[in-house]
Design a binder for these strands. Structure first.
Lengths: 233, 233
DNA sequence: TGTGCCCATTGGTGTGACTAATGTCCAGGC
DNA sequence: GCCTGGACATTAGTCACACCAATGGGCACA
């Protein structure tokens, strides 16, 4: 009998989500040892499924599995903290605030570079999209439509990351989107959005459109540093 | 009978490494469909092990598994390209050069921020270590000892990332180390190391030591942009 | 030509047995 | 009393087999 309700397409997926979130949340803490048999019993699944779940957690370096010992929770420092799932789990738990802070610092590094690269590599379609999204941001902020603003904001940043032509930068999109969502959910952002932030997005889009890498990077740097300021205020 | 030689602690680990590297290398290409049964036969392992391997690849979004269809290779754009293993596989294969370029761009974004953060948060031990490593770099470059230089270089960058106090930045260390190694292996770096690069490392260490975030970030930015120039020259 | 049902195919899960490491602990010797 | 070496209990690793559950494709029928 499962202790916790799980909804998922496949069994192991549900177990993984629950167990992963628990570990990411700090219970059981690093150093703890679990037994495969116990996991199977607790989630009312076969050892096969329990093993698959453990294997995946092991592949994220969150646990290590050894004969005669069991499944040991590894210290946070060794986890694949860039794995989208790990980020999601940590955002969902008690470490949410800390994770948002870490992500914001990462953004500060990554997004200006992405904007610069995008200025070199963005396709005509991507440029059109960026300009349109910048207009949407202005529109929705004037209307005070926070939900639509967030949506456009996420799409804007995703497009910049994709337009960078760098798959590593693009891979950070889900995490960055989480930051934007989390910031809105936690009232960590001015409402309505500051005009200056909206205008900076326009500047990014226009700089990319005229292939001005430096200006694009600088404008994006202003955006993310403003965000960092808001979060630490 | 296994088609390819594999050396690993556990069975599934060996299979994973071979199959993952193959897929990362582009064969079979995205869209291809594999059958669990075939994989088990090819690697001479049970379906259990084959399934675990597929699950892990699935957890990296490299493949998707569906009933009645099989295991489909997903397009590169959907992979967890930040997973250290994926990076390693791609560096090992034909995409090595492209992966190094992507990583260099990522470095350019991440490392200056890490240096700035480190200026705020580095411990006394970390500062001592950075200063010592900066001296090692000077020493080994004068001696022309490229191997020791590389070692100190890797340690230096790792220490900065760790000193940033940001686990997401620290998690990028393995990838960044690969860039440094790959650059040396491929003669993509001046030999002996340029004095200016060595001196920039000293500047980073000293800026962090005197808690000057801006100077630390600027010096690091010079380092990584010089590297980017060398790679695209 | 279209449309809906059937079923072959393929992954998903469960089970039990056996294998292989490896901490632990105890016996024996110094 | 302390070290050393080996037997043993424990726990993950692997395998084979059986059965369940989707589902894409093709066939029969309208």
């Amino acid at each position: 009998m499962a202790v916790t309700t799980m909804s998922a397409e496949t069994l192991h997926e549900g177990v993984l989500d629950v167990l992963g979130a628990e570990i990411a949340g700090g219970t059981p803490p690093p150093g703890s040892v679990l037994r495969l048999e116990d996991l199977a019993a607790r989630f009312d699944v076969s050892r096969t499924v329990a093993r698959e779940v453990v294997r995946i957690l092991e592949s994220m370096s969150m646990v290590s599995s050894r004969r005669r010992v069991g499944v040991t929770i590894r210290p946070l420092a060794e986890w694949n903290v860039l794995d989208p799932r790990v980020i999601r789990w940590r955002l969902a738990g008690t470490g949410r605030r800390a994770q948002l802070t870490s992500l914001t610092v990462l953004r500060a590094g990554v997004e200006p570079v992405a904007a610069s690269e995008a200025a070199h590599r963005a396709s005509a379609d991507q440029i059109d999209r960026l300009l349109a999204l910048a207009r949407d941001l202005l529109e929705t902020s004037r209307l005070g439509d926070l939900a639509s603003f967030l949506e456009a904001d996420i799409a804007f940043h995703q497009t910049v990351l994709e337009a960078s032509g760098n798959e590593l930068l693009a891979a950070l999109h889900p995490a960055i989107a989480e930051v934007l969502v989390g910031r809105t959910q936690h009232q960590l952002m001015p409402n309505p959005p500051r005009d200056v932030a909206v205008d900076l997005h326009r500047q990014v889009a226009e700089a990319i459109a005229r292939r001005d890498a430096r200006a694009a990077g600088d404008a994006m740097r202003s955006i993310v540093s403003e965000v960092g300021g808001a979060l630490t205020e």
